[in-house]
């Protein structure tokens, strides 16, 4: 079981059989997500190696393995932005311990979206997941 928020997305996706509807849902999730303000779209928050631009602002409340992890993120590409919203459901409001236990590729596979995490894709999502894991490991 992943986070509650993510399991809700999985449930929604169970009713969507074609990729068009899944993409539409993902894109809509991106549209509904609060955009990252320009002041936070800086080199320090930018995730490297992306064809489209991706930013990640992590936030940790508390200390140790039970600290709460949150992040805000954004992209200039709409599908990637939507996928960031999916990752947010997967990772946000989780403890550091839980974050480190997440297998993002497996979870996104449940949505049929794991191809976006493959090494061949330069959309920045893979780099974003790696950055999240790094930040959590250091917490």
């Amino acid at each position: 079981m992943a986070s509650e928020a993510f399991e809700e997305i999985v449930e929604t996706f169970e009713f969507l059989d074609d990729w068009e509807d899944r993409y539409r849902t993902v894109i809509d999730m991106g549209k509904d997500m609060d955009p990252l303000e320009d002041a936070l779209r800086v080199p320090a928050t930018k995730v490297d190696g992306c064809a489209s631009q991706v930013w990640l602002v992590p936030e940790i409340e508390g200390e140790g393995p039970t600290a709460t992890f949150r992040f805000r993120g954004d992209s200039d590409a709409m599908i990637v932005r939507g996928l960031i919203a999916v990752l947010k459901a997967l990772y946000s409001e989780q403890t550091i311990e839980q974050v480190l236990a997440v297998n993002a590729s497996e979870e996104l596979g449940r949505l049929g979206l794991n191809d976006h995490l493959s090494a061949q894709r330069s959309n920045g999502l893979r780099a974003m997941v790696e950055r999240i894991q790094q930040v959590a490991a250091k917490a």
């Binding site: 489209s52 992209s75 200039d76 590409a77 709409m78 599908i79 990637v80 959309n123």
Partner: peptide
């Protein structure tokens, strides 16, 4: 929409 959005679809 970004060029990559379009090419993905």
């Amino acid at each position: 929409a970004h060029a990559h959005d379009i090419s993905t679809v």
